[in-house]
């Protein structure tokens, strides 16, 4: 069996296309690369969707935390505190069992007990809280002069927000937001280890890496493969965010452009 056959059989295994059984006694390098790579589909799915949806909710949370209305402020503060103050791992567990008991009274919640949407909801709220705090910090450090200049030009309300406040906020927050995105992708590996069950062994990259390590008693092959995939993913994320950063800062003189620095020191 050549490597191409294995890729054809297992390349899309994690979403249920291809060979039904996982390999039982053949664990060639090609098997491991293919299956772990196929698991990356889930990591990318969770990461991309949570980031896209979380971005908008995070903006709302940041504005809520800045707001003078105590109801908005309090609720935004509590949301951010709860999701930043507790471990993501426990949040997954709690959400899973919450959906499980909600399902019994409201059948509408039954899809939420499977990972593809239930875990996505948790990741969405979690990344919104972390990003909301980053955006809030950025909103606070918008230069006073920018707002004054906007006032002087007669910009108010929504127009001022859209043209001045929001772009400046993004510019200031972008390096920190890049780190958040990287960590969100790392956090997606927790999904299948925390309550949410895998259906028919369709798991993410770490699930398959763990499968191989358990079967072969040799952690020195699957985990470095996983690490390699994640380093590539991280580099892609940095590249994409760097492009956006360039666009956000395109009107500024080059020496002032905020360069994205890789500072990783967060786990959830």
């Amino acid at each position: 069996m050549s490597c191409w056959d294995i890729i054809a059989d297992y390349g899309l295994r994690s979403i249920g296309i291809g060979e039904r059984l996982l390999p039982r006694n053949e664990f060639t390098l090609c098997h491991q690369f293919t299956l772990i790579g196929s698991g990356m589909i889930w990591n990318i799915y969770f990461g991309v969707l949570a980031l896209l949806s979380g971005f908008f909710f995070a903006t709302l949370l940041a504005l809520g935390k800045m707001s003078t209305n105590p109801i908005f402020r309090r609720s935004a503060e509590w949301t951010i505190f709860i999701f930043r103050g507790s471990p993501l791992f426990i949040q997954f567990f709690f959400a899973y069992f919450l959906f499980l008991s909600l399902k019994q009274s409201f059948p509408i919640f039954s899809p939420f007990t499977s990972a593809w949407i239930g875990a996505l909801v948790v990741l969405f709220l979690n990344t919104s809280a972390y990003t909301g705090e980053i955006f809030y910090g950025a909103l606070q450090s918008i230069p006073k002069g920018d707002i004054e200049a906007a006032d002087a030009y007669g910009l108010t309300g929504m127009k001022r927000f859209r043209r001045i406040t929001w772009p400046t906020m993004l510019r200031l927050a972008w390096p920190a937001y890049t780190n958040e995105a990287i960590f969100l992708f790392h956090a997606t590996t927790l999904v299948f280890f925390s309550g949410f069950p895998t259906t028919r062994q369709r798991g993410d990259a770490l699930y398959y890496a763990n499968y191989f390590a358990d079967k072969t008693f040799n952690p020195f092959v699957p985990y470095p493969i996983l690490a390699g995939y994640f380093i590539v993913l991280t580099l892609i994320v940095i590249g994409l965010y760097g492009l956006v950063n360039k666009r956000l800062n395109r009107h500024l003189p080059t020496s002032d452009r905020g360069k994205i620095k890789l500072r990783m020191n967060i786990i959830r």
């Binding site: 790392h186 590996t189 280890f193 380093i231």
Partner: peptide, 10 residues
């Protein structure tokens, strides 16, 4: 550079 749980398990 690598997810922490991958490290823990490894």
């Amino acid at each position: 550079g690598v997810p922490e749980i991958a490290f823990f398990m490894f």
